[in-house]
């Protein structure tokens, strides 16, 4: 049998069938794998929060247990320092907020306990050179010094901007001041220009735009979180 494949009706039917088959295949594999990939995403987010607390390279199956032990609660605050949602249960309030939903009045914050000390983890989002970047900065109980930091990116250049994802870049934030008495927040400056100043960190050589992106992100979000952090020391 020889089909006339140049026929208009045949062409249209062919495309319709192809699209239906493909749509079915994709829908099937998406919904079949969704629960697995969601679980992976949750674990990945917990890993990132723990990395900001300098708990890195945990085995995959222990992440949930460590997170449960370390993170006491996650709340939602607004930029004027008010607590919007208390987050009495874990994984409920702050944790549920996706990166896209961050705003001045919708800021997640994690309260953690490490060896009896309270730490606060501040999530943040920003723009790199090619795509979005995000990070978590953990702050000591005094609300003034950095305990640890974690940054990640969607699509920065491998070997250049992508270095913000490496511990060598992230570890230099440890012990830095969140803000000076004059209110200047933590900065990422040109590589080599930080000179061990308490509020400055070196950027990545050859990745000026990514470094600027990290700087802008830290600047914007620390200003959002500062009223809350300041209220920790001066309870009214």
């Amino acid at each position: 049998m020889k089909l006339n494949t140049e026929n208009n009706l045949y062409t249209i039917l062919y495309i319709v069938v192809v699209v239906i088959v493909v749509a079915f295949l994709l829908a099937f594999s998406y919904s079949g794998l969704k629960s697995r990939s969601d679980a992976n995403e949750r674990i990945n987010k917990k890993e990132q929060i723990l990395a900001a607390l300098n708990l890195r390279n945990l085995p995959k199956d222990s992440v949930d247990a460590v997170y449960k032990q370390v993170v006491v609660s996650d709340l939602v605050i607004s930029a004027d320092g008010q607590v919007v949602k208390k987050g009495e249960k874990q994984d409920q309030d702050g944790f549920q907020i996706e990166r896209k939903a961050f705003s001045k009045d919708n800021l997640p914050l994690y309260i953690c306990q490490i060896d009896g000390d309270t730490k606060y983890v501040l999530p943040m989002v920003g723009k790199g050179l090619w795509g979005s970047i995000w990070g978590f900065i953990s702050v000591n109980a005094d609300g003034k010094t950095v305990y640890g930091a974690y940054f990640a990116h969607e699509s920065e250049t491998a070997g250049l901007g992508a270095i913000i994802n490496e511990p060598s870049f992230q570890n230099q934030f440890q012990g830095k001041l969140i803000a000076t008495a004059e209110g200047d927040t933590l900065q990422v400056v040109k590589s080599g220009a930080a000179n061990n100043e308490p509020t400055k960190c070196d950027g990545v050589t050859g990745a000026t735009l990514t470094s600027n992106g990290v700087n802008m992100m830290i600047h914007t979000y620390l200003n959002y979180y500062l009223p809350y952090l300041n209220s920790l020391n001066n309870p009214q």
Binding site: L3, T5, E6, N7, Y10, T11, Y14
Partner: peptide, 14 residues
């Protein structure tokens, strides 16, 4: 053999 010539690129892409 079943692909209509006029839409073959679209089918390949899909």
């Amino acid at each position: 053999k079943s692909i209509p010539k006029r839409v073959r690129i679209i089918v390949q892409l899909v």
